Amino acid sequence: MMIRPYTDADEQGWLRCRVLAFLNTAYFDNVLQKKEHYENPSIELVAIENNQIVGLIDIEYEMEPQTICTAHDTVGGMIWHIAVHPDYQHRHIGEELIKAALKQAKALKLTYLEAWTRDNAKIQKWYEKMRFVQTYTYHHLYFDEPALEKYDLSVPAQVRPVTMFAHYTGSDPDVLNRASRRHLCMCYVKRII
């Protein structure tokens, strides 16, 4: 396996790897048709084996504190994407991607990495193994049409919401129970020493 910087020619392989890696996670419906490009500088790496992308990591980093990340008053990097193709999981590819990204982050004088994930025990355990610390949580809520009927949404008469995705920072069980689907969203932070 080789880890190298992402190039534009990698886009289709990057997309395939990400879609397949996310398929059996709480992010199964977060499908991209194009790879994101970032407003700020970034570390974008891919892991290659057998001439295909088997892993990826994208980190957009700050030039000034708290312009991308939320955790500290020093500059950090936001892990927007980290994924390993399901056929190549449990072979330490994610760990190698983190190590390679940390090396670059250290050279850039970043002081921490931040990542957000949803409630998945395996992924939480992996971040903790990589020495990330959970710092904050809130909920991602999905509402289907019957669940939305319970809310008075201020929208024009010609607009009829059918589904809705929302961030919820409260703890009212009634709100949580009204959602058709809900996930605990967690922030993990790793200090770079």
Rank of each mutant, 00 (worst) to 15 (best):
R4Q: 02
T7H: 07
D8T: 12
D8K: 11
A9W: 05
A9V: 05
D10H: 08
D10Q: 09
Q12H: 04
G13F: 01
L15P: 01
R16A: 14
R18Y: 08
L20R: 14
L20T: 04
A21L: 09
A21E: 11
A21V: 08
T25D: 07
Y27R: 11
V31R: 11
V31P: 04
L32D: 12
L32I: 07
K34C: 07
Y38E: 04
N40S: 11
I43K: 04
E44D: 10
L45A: 04
L45Y: 03
L45P: 02
L45C: 04
V46Q: 01
A47W: 05
E49I: 02
E49H: 04
E49N: 04
I53L: 00
V54K: 04
V54Q: 04
L56V: 12
I57N: 07
I59N: 08
E60F: 03
Y61M: 10
E62T: 10
P65S: 09
T67V: 14
C69N: 11
T70L: 09
T74W: 11
T74D: 14
T74Y: 14
G76D: 12
G76N: 13
G77P: 02
G77R: 03
G77W: 08
M78W: 00
H81D: 11
H81F: 15
H81I: 14
I82D: 00
V84K: 02
H85G: 04
P86Q: 12
D87S: 15
Y88G: 07
Y88W: 14
Q89T: 13
H90L: 11
H92Q: 15
I93W: 08
I98D: 08
K99R: 14
A100W: 08
A101D: 10
L102V: 12
L102S: 11
K103W: 00
Q104C: 04
Q104I: 15
A105L: 14
A105S: 15
L108Q: 10
K109R: 09
K109P: 03
L110E: 05
T111H: 13
L113E: 00
L113V: 00
A115D: 04
W116G: 00
W116Y: 13
W116M: 01
R118Q: 09
D119E: 07
N120W: 05
N120V: 02
A121F: 01
A121S: 06
K122V: 02
K122F: 03
W126H: 01
Y127D: 00
R131T: 05
R131V: 02
V133W: 08
T135A: 07
Y138N: 15
D144Y: 10
E145D: 13
E145I: 13
P146Q: 08
A147L: 12
L148M: 11
E149C: 03
E149S: 14
K150H: 15
K150V: 12
D152N: 13
S154N: 13
V155E: 13
P156F: 06
A157P: 05
Q158I: 12
V159E: 14
R160T: 12
P161I: 03
V162Q: 12
V162E: 11
M164P: 06
M164H: 04
A166S: 15
H167V: 05
H167E: 15
Y168I: 07
S171K: 14
D172F: 06
V175Y: 05
S180E: 06
S180R: 01
R181S: 05
H183E: 03
L184H: 03
L184F: 03
C187W: 01
Y188R: 00
V189C: 03
V189R: 01
R191A: 10
I193P: 10
I193A: 09
